[in-house]
Amino acid sequence: MATLELKNITKRFKTHVVLDDLSLSLKDGERLVLFGPSGSGKTVLLRLIAGVIDPDQGKILIGGEDVTDLDAEYRGIGMAFQNFALFPHMTAFDNIATPLTARREKQGAIKAGVEAVAKLLKIDHVLSHHPKQLSNGQKQRTALARALAGQPPVLLLDDPLRNVDAKLRFEMRLELPRLLAKQGATVLYVTQDYKEAMALGDRIAVMAGGRVSQLGTPDEIYNSPANIEIARLFGDPTINLLEVTPKKDGAGVYVELSDVRVALPHVAESVVGRACVIGLRPETLGFADGGVKGAIPVEVEAETPLNEKTVTLVRTLRGREILVSRPAGTPGPTSGAAFIRVDGSHAFLFDKESGARISDHDLHRMRKGEAA
């Protein structure tokens, strides 16, 4: 196993800054997921670590050793590229065996190693095929198998499940953590699928604009998003975002939705009168009887069953749309007038101008008169 440390990495292509003074540190055997939209610098970062391209500034350390200027073949890294990068003249078997043959392993050990990882990835039946005979999903799994076969101390996986079918993708989300834990490698895993990030990462680094905008466990990222954009990226259906201005009465801080008071029990008075956005996860909302205190009147616009859950689109009296998610089979209105309940203790509050979540730390600074 090996640690992986990136110190103040900057990479430019002409005048475009792709990575901007980025630093990350991975412990031995840790799985860190790089998550973010296309163009945020995820793949470029993997290629820098692999030694395919060089940084303009910064250092890359593996196991405490500075490898920034070390050739790729001496870094002890396995990588599965997003675009497969298979040798077209080789069979799938020979492609997977590449790191083993490079180490001059015995033929028996090579055969056993290739067949074991191929069976796990369900491509053992196409080992004699050349890349042109493989489907995209099979090519992707062959590239992944090649990265795993050499059992390197550091693994770089660039969206390796993107081109596999939905069933296999689901199965691999379950299988990969076990396999990677068994290998003991330090893993940097790139994906644009938030469910994959949540399932595979010990921690998640959310990237935007060449920087890490939030680093934390899957639970921290989902339940304490640093800003509106991260809150949007994590969740299906997406989070509800409504502009509000917090108020205060004798019972505490609250906001109004359709003239109905929604208490915010964990919010300090410092936010009163501030232009904010409230974030409400659809699964934290529910339908209620009209006579219940705090019930918010809405009009049901549409209902969509999604296997394990049902998502309902409702509209408030002022025309604001809200998504409500409930477990499949749970009763709920399908049309017409209805009421929803909102638990303010599960709400997020964001600054309207910056998009940053207003955390307890921010509120503490505001109370002391510092800039938030």
Rank of each mutant, 00 (worst) to 15 (best):
D202H: 14
P152Q: 13
S359C: 04
E65C: 00
R47S: 00
A197R: 08
R320T: 14
D28N: 14
E308I: 10
A226Q: 03
L168R: 05
A295D: 10
F348H: 15
K119A: 11
L188Y: 08
E303H: 00
I340F: 07
C276L: 02
L200G: 04
G355A: 06
D71N: 10
G273P: 05
V271A: 10
A371H: 12
K352N: 10
S345M: 03
D289W: 03
E321M: 13
E283C: 02
G216E: 03
F84C: 07
A85P: 10
K11T: 04
G113W: 09
A295W: 11
T43D: 00
E308L: 13
A199R: 07
K59W: 01
G216T: 01
K132M: 13
L264Y: 10
L349I: 12
G273L: 02
R178G: 04
I110L: 02
L46K: 02
G36P: 09
A295N: 05
G332M: 06
Y194K: 01
R211N: 06
L134D: 10
F84H: 12
E308M: 09
E105D: 12
D343E: 13
D20K: 13
L233A: 14
L264N: 07
K195Q: 14
S128Q: 15
G36I: 03
R162I: 02
G41Q: 10
H361Y: 12
A288Q: 13
H364N: 13
T98Q: 08
R169N: 05
L70E: 11
F35P: 07
K195T: 12
